[in-house]
């Protein structure tokens, strides 16, 4: 609409050492206010230690049609997953 505040996507680092995770969106006039609003809206229960905001229309996304070509090739590379390898129990944690 004519004067609507832009939409921002909010990413929050829940604990030290974790990645930022998408938690939702909100409206704000600019990035600074988006961060403040995110603090008030998305960390009401101590959920965060760090906040990223990105204006929603700046997010580039893969299109759903590409889902096959983008992701299926990696499905066949099962050796990338640690459970692919059998490690004898005697060896201990690895």
């Amino acid at each position: 609409m004519k004067n609507e505040w832009p939409l921002w996507e909010i990413f929050i680092r829940g604990q030290h050492g974790m990645s930022h995770r998408h938690v939702g969106s909100l409206h704000a006039p600019d990035a600074e206010m988006a961060i403040k609003n995110a603090r008030d809206v998305y960390t009401r229960r101590n959920e965060g230690v760090s906040i990223w905001v990105v204006e929603a229309n700046h997010i580039a996304a893969s299109s759903p049609g590409d889902k096959g070509p983008l992701y299926e090739p990696s499905e066949s590379k099962v050796y990338r997953h640690p459970t692919f390898f059998d490690i004898p129990e005697e060896v201990g944690a690895m």
Binding site: M1, E4, L7, G24, S25, L26, H27, V41, R44
Partner: peptide, 18 residues
Amino acid sequence: GHGLYLYCAAETLGVSRD
């Protein structure tokens, strides 16, 4: 807050909160 989350969900369908 719940209203806000839901409006955001609706917005992904191409309608604005306003």
